[in-house]
């Protein structure tokens, strides 16, 4: 796989506070990489360094294997925290300035405004926009020049549920086009629904990283119950593909190897003479996993 971004030992301090401690990470082409962590974990600091607005104290990074320069940034679509535009300019005037900065043809302005559904408000001043519209304009701006890589920091911050859903749809559509997306978030649900990979930060330290399933262990759990709980427990341990048997109250939870499903389990138990009084599939409690991780 081709690395889009290499981060080697980045560190950054604000006075006594260590905002980022020796972060190393590789992000490959086509990844949807979530940077997850509570507030103050160093997510925005990391993205700020990668986009040239913060100076790192030590360490280095490279986009596409080259030393950082303003020319990489022209080919990255970014949305960092709040949308930053001139309040007294219209949406179209604001984007036309971005086009000039990114050296992109101004004819793209109308098409990106259509993508985010702001074309009817193209000639309204930015200051008249609602928060959701401002955020959508920022996404439109990030799409100018059809960049291969997008860097998004808390893209749904402060939006209402409908706005969040809209932004998510846009991000997933972009992902389908094969773009590389790097997304910082403190909302687990958001990362889980959109990302392929995740890195978890806490107080500037990288706790863990990798494909999202392996990091957050989002395998489904099966919960079973029977009159004879001890017999059930014993029999379960003899069934092929069953792992992680745990007692929860008067029920048992377990995990099944990939390829095995609940009907396989039910049948195997029935064959061994165990009748289940209950069998249910439980979505994994990512929240609990995540909280466990950052404890």
């Amino acid at each position: 796989m081709e690395a889009i971004l290499n981060i080697n030992g980045l560190s950054k301090r604000y006075g006594k506070v260590k905002a980022l401690n020796n972060l190393s990470l590789q992000i490959n082409r086509g990844d949807i990489y979530g940077i997850l962590g509570p507030n103050g974990s160093g997510k925005t600091t990391t993205l700020g360094i990668l986009l040239g607005v913060l100076n790192a104290d030590s360490g280095s990074y490279s986009w596409n294997g080259k030393a950082p320069s303003k020319y990489d940034r022209k080919n990255i679509g970014s949305l960092i925290e709040t949308p930053n535009f001139y309040p007294y300019l219209t949406a179209r005037q604001n984007l036309s300035i971005v086009c000039k900065v990114k050296e992109v043809d101004e004819s793209e302005v109308d098409s990106v405004l259509s993508i985010v559904d702001l074309i009817n408000r193209a000639d309204s001043k930015f200051k008249t926009f609602s928060l959701g519209m401002k955020q959508r304009l920022a996404i439109a701006s990030a799409l100018l020049g059809n960049p291969e890589t997008l860097v998004l920091d808390e893209p749904t911050n402060g939006l209402d549920p409908q706005g969040i859903a809209e932004i998510r749809t846009i991000i997933l559509d972009l992902a389908k086009e094969g773009k590389t997306i790097i997304m910082a978030s403190h909302i687990l649900d958001e990362v889980e629904k959109t990302c392929t990979h995740v890195a978890v930060l806490k107080l500037g330290n990288l706790l863990t990283y990798g494909p999202i399933q392996s990091v957050l262990n989002n395998q489904e759990q099966i919960v079973v119950a029977s009159e004879n709980l001890d017999g059930l427990k014993l029999t379960l341990s003899q069934i092929d593909g069953v792992s992680n048997i745990q007692q929860v109250g008067n029920k048992l939870s377990l995990m099944l190897a990939t390829g095995k499903d609940s009907s396989y389990l039910n049948k195997s138990l029935f064959d061994k003479g165990i009748i289940l009084s209950e069998i249910s599939i439980q979505k994994p409690d990512l929240e609990a996993n995540f909280l466990e991780l950052i404890k």
Binding site: G52, K70, Y71, R73, N84, V98, V101, K102, S141
Partner: peptide, 21 residues
Amino acid sequence: CNEFSFKTYRQQVIDGHSKAD
């Protein structure tokens, strides 16, 4: 100062200007 308070200086650096620009 508008460029600082609107954060448009920051945005333009992110979008591909250098500090020298």
